[in-house]
């Protein structure tokens, strides 16, 4: 499927604060929990890599947007049918959103994303001439 036909759900933007890559002093509601997946962010010489542990979804369920140097990743899926009252339920990643402020040298426009083996891997190239002002939607492959 090429970008022109990729289905992209319009997921309503939630009131989430963007978190800087390395900021630990942000408020508590941004931490991973049973309904917000955990994230690993690493940096190499040429790119930033964001890996989100969100198993049990499909690539169509994600919505990634870069706007004003903030990357917002949201996902929504029809509920899986767990009954939290009756069973042991430690995770439920059917509806969440996380946002990160991009560093100055991250090129949001050239971001690519891939959903593989339950992990959403987002690669953002590093470029000193990066332009992060314009808004882009990133498709997940």
């Amino acid at each position: 499927m090429y970008p022109g036909t990729a289905s992209s759900k319009s997921i309503p933007a939630k009131s989430i604060k963007a978190m800087y890559f390395k900021d630990e002093l942000q408020s508590n509601n941004l931490k991973p929990s049973s309904s917000i997946p955990a994230v690993n962010i690493s940096k190499t010489a040429v790119k930033y890599v964001i890996v989100i542990a969100a198993p049990g979804l499909h690539r169509e369920d994600f919505c990634i947007e870069v706007n004003n140097a903030i990357i917002t990743i949201a996902a929504q899926k029809v509920a899986s049918g767990y009954d939290p009252a009756n069973d042991r339920c430690e995770y439920d990643y059917t509806d969440w959103a996380r946002a990160f402020t991009l560093p100055e040298d991250a090129d949001g426009l050239l971001t690519n994303a891939e959903y593989q083996n339950g992990e959403l891997v987002i690669q953002i190239p590093r470029n000193t001439l990066a332009d992060n002002v314009s808004q882009t939607t990133i498709y997940v492959y």
Binding site: G56, D87, R88, C89, Y91, E119
Partner: peptide, 29 residues
């Protein structure tokens, strides 16, 4: 420094139906 915050053990959902028990473990990658 974040040692307590790094998740080392994946989360588990357990459902019981009439015929079976279903475990689902979130262990991506």
């Amino acid at each position: 420094f974040n040692y307590g915050k790094v998740l080392n053990v994946p989360a588990v959902n357990v459902t019981e139906t009439e015929k079976d028990f279903r475990l689902s473990i979130a262990a991506p990658g």
